[in-house]
Simulated assay, not measured.
Amino acid sequence: MRQVRRTVNRVLLGLTGLVLLGAGGLVLAGGLGVPEKGRGLPAGWPWDAPGDVLLRAADRTRWAGSGWWWPVVIAVLAVLVLLALWWLLAQFRNRRLREVLVDTGDGEGALLRGRALEDVLAAEAESADGVHRAVMRLTGRRREPHVRARLLLEPHADPAGAVHLLSTRAVAHAREATGLPELPAEVRLRAVRHRAERVT
């Protein structure tokens, strides 16, 4: 889902950028009087002089008298508003999870603070050799949480070993303790940078 949202964001931003760039270029060309200077632009260029408007009165009112015009305009605008709202809400869908539903075995369940589980995961990950610091973040739903981990590794650390220990120790222990059937984790690794010390 996160990858799909990232792809949709890039496509929407790319298309919006292309439309704005094209519209800005056309307006700039008209404002600078490029068409009337004959700079090799196509025939029938809509803006012949800097004083021209983007849409002439005839173009703005061409279909205003038709019965289908206003319903189509309203429908298109409504769809655009709904798409914009969907896109806006999707940005906050993977925010930090406040609570995790723990299976207590009696059919009732209990709520565990997400921050507490994040702290336990981080502490266990930092206990591994070569892990300088671990930052955990829970996303998703209460019944289906996801772990987003960032590990800051020492120069001597083994990245593959650190990821393996995280999955087999910290994440596995958290999954067993909460009774979750699965606990997916996404791990990002970075190397710690120590300041060089002056030797005298």
Results as ranks from 00 to 15, higher is better:
Gly179Tyr: 08
Thr16Arg: 06
Val187Gly: 09
Leu85Asn: 03
Ala43Gly: 15
Thr61Gly: 12
Val192Leu: 02
Glu118Tyr: 14
Ala49Gly: 04
Leu28Arg: 04
Gly24Arg: 04
Ala177Asp: 02
Asp52Ser: 14
Ala157Leu: 08
Gly161His: 11
Ala160Tyr: 00
Leu55Val: 14
Val147Arg: 06
Thr139Val: 09
Ala49Cys: 01
Gly38Tyr: 07
Trp47Ala: 01
Glu154Ile: 06
Pro35Met: 12
Thr139Met: 01
Ala125His: 01
Asn94Glu: 11
Leu101Met: 00
Leu41Glu: 06
Ala134Gly: 01
Ser167Glu: 14
Glu36Lys: 05
Arg195Ser: 03
Gln3Met: 07
Glu118Thr: 08
Val4Arg: 12
Gly65Met: 08
Arg56Leu: 05
Val27Arg: 09
Glu108Phe: 11
Trp63Phe: 14
Leu189Thr: 05
Asp48Phe: 00
Leu55Thr: 13
Leu97Met: 02
Glu186Cys: 01
Pro155His: 00
Leu166Pro: 11
Trp45Asp: 11
Ser66Gln: 12
Val72Arg: 10
Leu117Tyr: 09
Arg2Glu: 13
Arg169Glu: 12
Thr7Gly: 13
Ala191Cys: 06
Ala78Tyr: 08
Ala58Ser: 14
Pro145Glu: 01
Ala90Glu: 09
Arg150Ser: 11
Arg150Phe: 12
Trp68Ile: 11
Leu80Trp: 12
Gly14Gln: 04
Val8Ser: 03
Ala162Trp: 10
Leu117Asn: 02
Leu180Tyr: 07
Arg56Gly: 15
Arg141Glu: 14
Leu97Val: 06
Gln3Ala: 06
Asp119Pro: 05
Leu189Met: 04
Arg2Ile: 12
Ala196Met: 03
Pro50His: 13
Val120Pro: 00
Leu82Cys: 03
Phe92Pro: 00
Leu152Ala: 10
Glu126Ile: 05
Ala23Tyr: 05
Leu26Lys: 06
Asp52Glu: 13
Gly33Pro: 06
Leu55Gly: 08
Ala160Phe: 02
Leu83Trp: 01
Arg188Glu: 13
Ser66Thr: 15
Pro71Tyr: 15
Ala23Cys: 12
Arg10Asn: 11
Pro155Thr: 00
Val199Tyr: 03
Pro145Leu: 00
Arg188Cys: 09
Val147Lys: 08
Arg150Trp: 15
Val100Glu: 02
Gly25Trp: 12
Gly105Asn: 14
Leu180Lys: 07
Arg39Ile: 14
Gly14Glu: 10
Glu154His: 08
Val34Trp: 09
Leu112Cys: 13
Ala157Thr: 00
Arg143Ala: 01
Ala78Met: 07
Val19Leu: 14
Trp63Met: 14
Leu41Trp: 08
Gly161Asp: 12
Asp129Met: 10
Pro46Val: 07
Arg141Thr: 15
Glu99Asn: 09
Leu183Asp: 01
Leu180Thr: 06
Ala49Met: 03
Pro184Met: 02
Arg6Pro: 02
Ala134Tyr: 03
Ala157Gly: 05
Ala78Ile: 07
Leu20Trp: 14
Ala177Met: 04
Ser167Ala: 15
Gly51Pro: 07
His173Phe: 04
Thr7Lys: 11
Leu32Gln: 07
Ala78Thr: 14
Ala90Val: 04
Leu112Glu: 12
Arg10Val: 13
Glu124Gly: 03
Glu108Gly: 12
Ala177Cys: 02
Gly179Leu: 05
Ala90His: 04
Pro184Phe: 08
Val120Phe: 01
Arg115Gly: 02
